[in-house]
Design a protein around this nucleic acid. Structure first.
Lengths: 328, 328
DNA sequence: CTCCTAATCGATACCGGTATCGATACCGAA
DNA sequence: TTCGGTATCGATACCGGTATCGATTAGGAG
């Protein structure tokens, strides 16, 4: 059985395809009885409209592309959920493209999404290069940046204030008595990571503490990256009694490493993360962290692109709150 | 700037649209020089093909719909990742539809995906009703069932052997000396949960232990469901020294409840979960569980629908392995 | 009765590709 | 020279909708 078309309905109802269209879409210029007749025929035949044809005609796909590093990363999973949920409410569908933190994959993914003629893109860029994203401006394809603060793109952007958050996190460690605080971050080109590092430095300076380069480890990725960074610090005999970690995922690795090294948390070393992913309260010790509004990032990013009431907003900066648990 | 079409290329290259199509798609019946000329024009103009038009013409969208309860649930996030990754390799895109374990949402989501003329659907059904899925058979839309074992649908299916896994998990608790083992599960119509419960009963009987109804709690959902079920058991003064929980997410709630009740794990009560979500090794105590092949479920489901080499397989049953950690 | 207007509806172009089929030109063979 | 075959290419229909515009009809006003 193939799909029923408006032509089939037209034949059964004894009207033109145009009249069918009018009936199905609740348009004017149609008699009530004719409308009823058409709708009955459509129902009887089991008509389901074809969005490909509609997209072609309307030059609008009602699809939004979401480009993130990994949908299985709990942070991005929440953001994606925020997008999916909001998109659904607005009659949009979401096509997912994972980049695996790889620029080529990102560029390839975006190109495929343009072929789909997505109405817009919500992107958390890999940040190695921006060529593919700048390309979007050439084609005048609407897009928004999620979860990263990027200068000079002239696009809607929703992100967390990492300098503020990093500062709050670090100050908390200082107030808890930490004297030698390390920062464990992601790749240097990751602006979210580098901003949190700036906040970290700012807090140290404000409290009269010196910024030491050998206490700053960047370049790690996810759990393993956090683990390796701690091992690095220890291998270099660097003293530390507090660690501010770029995000909770890396903090998992940090905690794993400290446990293996029999270093007691929080007695010997205090650890604070960032994001507050769902499982931070269940790990051992439960993780003190900065609670970010993940679902909202996805929701707001979508609305900045597609909700006419929100489109005048070029930049939305969110604030994270300190959540105190056992690790610090 | 609007999109470049084949017509534009044709004009610039001085050929017909048909010749353009031949050049772009590497088809025969075209002179090498003409082809070169066309490709150059296409490149110069920045042509990007339009998949909506292609879908309409080819009656094939190269889109697969993924219908799951929640992409932020770590189990389903991994499955989704498996689908996305495999789909990408096959030139497909994924549209996500979360059901939130609600039948109406599932039915609505599936209908929208049909409007997109997806080439197939990968579904983890809510299982309250199957009307919407049976509808797919009427329309002859290919679909596969992921992660659930459902009789009578006559569709490809990939799932974990819950009776086997449930049995292994329960037997492990028995071997560890548990005498009163509780089962905490999900909704009764969830076949994955009920099969694991069957395995639980099977293991009890095999070891000469009686199945006690007041030790079986079903109906819970995610973390909160696990938490509530433990509180229920305790409120009813039911004695237990071991708990087999339907999945790791609910196990998180179980552990939370036991901790609050100052019940020591594993000394007083041993807990075993199912799935082995990424964070099970980080929680406190780390969770003994059954490792399920999550990514593979997504991968296999996709291939069963779209890879001609795999399409003769109607059913793939995966086996989970016991992962021993601290909780049991 | 004629004219005007509103209500209703159909014919058709169009969106951007692909596929079918026919047209043309050129070649070598008879 | 004529013919058939092959290589190359274009005209056009088509996919399934929507939108524009024109046609038809009926009813009321003059």
């Amino acid at each position: 059985m193939s799909y029923v078309t408006v032509k089939d309905i037209a034949k059964v109802a004894g009207v033109s395809v145009n009249t069918v269209s009018r009936a199905l879409n609740g348009k004017p210029d149609i008699n009530e009885e004719t409308k009823k007749k058409v709708l009955e025929a459509a129902k009887k035949l089991g008509y389901i409209s074809n969005r490909s044809a509609l997209s072609l005609k309307r030059q609008k796909s009602y699809i939004v592309g979401v480009v993130i590093e990994d949908n299985a990363n709990p942070f991005w999973a929440e953001v994606l959920k925020g997008v999916e949920s909001t998109a659904k409410a607005y009659g949009y569908h979401v096509i997912l493209a994972n980049t695996a933190r790889n620029y080529e994959t990102e560029a390839e993914g975006i190109k495929m999404l343009i072929e789909r003629r997505v109405d817009g893109l919500l992107i958390s860029p890999v940040q190695e290069k921006y060529d593919d994203i700048l390309n979007l401006k050439k084609y005048e394809i609407p897009f928004a940046i999620m979860g990263r603060h990027v200068e000079g793109l002239d696009a809607p952007m929703v992100y967390d204030d990492g300098i503020r958050g990093g500062s709050i996190a670090t100050e908390y460690l200082i107030k808890q008595g930490c004297k030698e605080i390390a920062f464990i971050g992601a790749q240097p080109y990751n602006t979210a990571s580098s901003e949190r590092c700036q906040g970290y430095k700012k807090a140290l300076q404000k409290n009269g503490m010196s910024v030491k380069d050998d206490l700053i480890k960047t370049g790690g990725i996810e759990i393993e990256g956090g683990y390796n960074s701690v091992m690095d610090l220890v291998a270099n005999h660097t003293e530390f009694d507090g660690i501010f970690v770029y995000n909770d995922l890396m903090a998992l690795g940090v905690i794993k490493a400290l446990k293996e090294l029999k270093i007691k948390i929080p007695e010997e070393v205090k650890v604070i993360g960032y994001d507050d992913i769902s499982y931070s309260s269940f790990i051992c010790p439960s993780l003190t962290t900065m609670r970010m509004k993940k679902f909202e990032i996805g929701e707001i990013a979508f609305k900045m692109l597609f909700d006419s009431n929100e489109q005048n907003k070029d930049e939305v900066v969110l604030h994270s709150d300190l959540v105190i648990r056992e690790s610090a």
